[in-house]
Amino acid sequence: MTQPNTTELARHRRERMMMWLQLTPVLLVLSVLFGGALILAVMQSLGFAPWFGVNTFPDFSYFGALWGSWSFWQSLGLTLYYAIVSTVIALVMGIFLALAMVRMFPCKTLYKYLYKLPLMIPYTVGIALAVIMLGNGGMISRLSAFFGFIGDPSEFPQILKTHYGWGVIAVYVWKQTPFVTLTIYAVLLGVGRETEEAASILGASKRQIFFQVTMPQILPGIVSSTLIIFAFNIGAFEAPFILGGGFPDTLPVVAWRYFNDADYTLQLQGMATVVSIALIASIILYSYLAFYRRYERRIGRN
């Protein structure tokens, strides 16, 4: 009687082991790279850098110096400003585009290729396009001269390299609207149109259908895509580096400058900056997710 039980148990155990064996490689790679980087970054920002002859762990003075300086908060504000504004614009544009994409229209197949193009190419291409369109000698400046609005490139309002960051935001929006669209379009395809039809038959107006039927359905897509692009925007380096307005820079650029400074010890300050970025991003994203989960529970999903 006990015999089959033990073999059953052994089989079960072997299967579990096989399962974890299959999960191990990916787990290992990510934990070592991710966990390792994170732990070392935190330790260095707290003064652990024996290779520079610095070992004052645990030492909060690097954070103190960083958070005590006014320019850090200016940089943080700027980073969040670029990230939030471009995420919101990309989200709104993406929702409208996805809603249009589920309709029938001629050349839809072609359009499905076309709108994905920015997804497929690097951000640096987007930056180059921003320079040629929005620069003072760029296409829009030429067009305004053509229509007689301005007579000299210097009269063209500065769009790039200002702290309003319209150039940075334009690149993010250009690159990320397709991503939001793709995500929401996928969700819309998944849920189908039956619920919208039902609501319409029950006499709901277009507005009601959008806000009370479609919106809750696409919400998971909205949340996951905005999480991803917001996190990217906080950590992005190249667009603010080229198109931003100089001091105060966004946090990733600040961290990079600390790293390339001739003064070695500033690297620890840079590490503190890096840890701050990760900390702030995770606080924001975690509260966003928690808020969303609470909403989900309130409306009775999950």
Binding site: L30, A37, A231, W256, V274
Partner: peptide, 27 residues
């Protein structure tokens, strides 16, 4: 939790991971 962990790289800012890893990789 495992699935969430696998999605982490999408939501941790690249600059943070990049610079932190650079230090290790230089070593």
């Amino acid at each position: 939790a495992f699935e969430f962990f696998l999605s982490m790289p999408l939501i941790v800012p690249e600059a943070a991971i990049g610079i932190a890893l650079l230090m290790i990789f230089i070593r």
